[in-house]
Amino acid sequence: MKKIVIGLAALALASAAGFAQAQEQKQLTMAVSIPAADHGWTGGVVYHAEREAKLLEERYPGLDIVVKTSPDGAAQANALEDLTAQGIDALVTLPHNSDELTDPIRQVKDSGVFVTVVDRALSDPTIQDLYVAGDNFGLGKHAGEYMKERMTEGGDIVIIRGLPIVIDEERQKGFDEGIAGSKLNVLDRQFGNWSRDDAFKVMQDYLAKYPKIDAVWAQDDDMVVGILEAIEQSGRSDIQFVVGGAGMKDMIKRVQDGDKMVPVDVLYPPAMIATAMDLTAAGLFDQNPVRGNYVLDATLVTQENAAEFYYPDSPF
């Protein structure tokens, strides 16, 4: 209930602000279009977008931020049209899917809006004024390199991928490059749909299929939760460790606590949306030069540096 009240209040404020805009020249509107929370990581994106929106509105009194979530690509395209129709000055967007949304975003751009794209680059990079992303290739590569170093004698590993989209392919390529030249043997790779439940099933099936598995690489920390549960249930002791990615707080905590099964994690922070909003606002109000590409490092989180990346309040 409280949420609804707050939501209504925000709506009222927003329209009041829109009214004020007509009278005062300094008012600017920033639209944030992101996918709805369909798994943990996108949930983190939504959380950080809303949190940053509040912070920025405090910092820049003339700034009005509209955060809009969409369940799929088509809905997002519609949302972009609606936002543009309202009249916006800047758009920060994490597109569902690059190919589908390139043209809708181009139209936004053509109406004179400053466009910031996060995480998933558009098919035509000239559209985006500012591009903020994590390093997907690096996420896979660092995980692969860690495994290569850890298992110099070689070993049997299994992989659980996400969904068949570009991000997944890049991470996979990075991992393959990371382990290149090692004695590691990849037994199997299957899709786990970035879902705990599906990863649990796939891991159970791997365990039935292969009598010996040394290590597991999963593309996402959400899936690691299911994998660990499946391993624990099987009672098998041959699996030495699991490497995930993204920087989910539970996993960072395990790394920090020295959990043998989760020795490291690779960062791919959902907070990148906040970085992008922050930069965009700075460009709008302070006229700092911000155009360009920002790739956040896929930092390898180890027990030593884990404390730095642990946000206990984040939902992810």
């Binding site: 369909d38 798994h39 943990g40 996108t42 949930g43 749909n193 879902s195 705990r196 439940d197 939760v225």
Partner: peptide
């Protein structure tokens, strides 16, 4: 009790 959590993808 299996995973001890409910997420946005639970029951999808």
């Amino acid at each position: 009790p299996r995973l001890g959590a409910a997420t946005a993808t639970t029951g999808l």
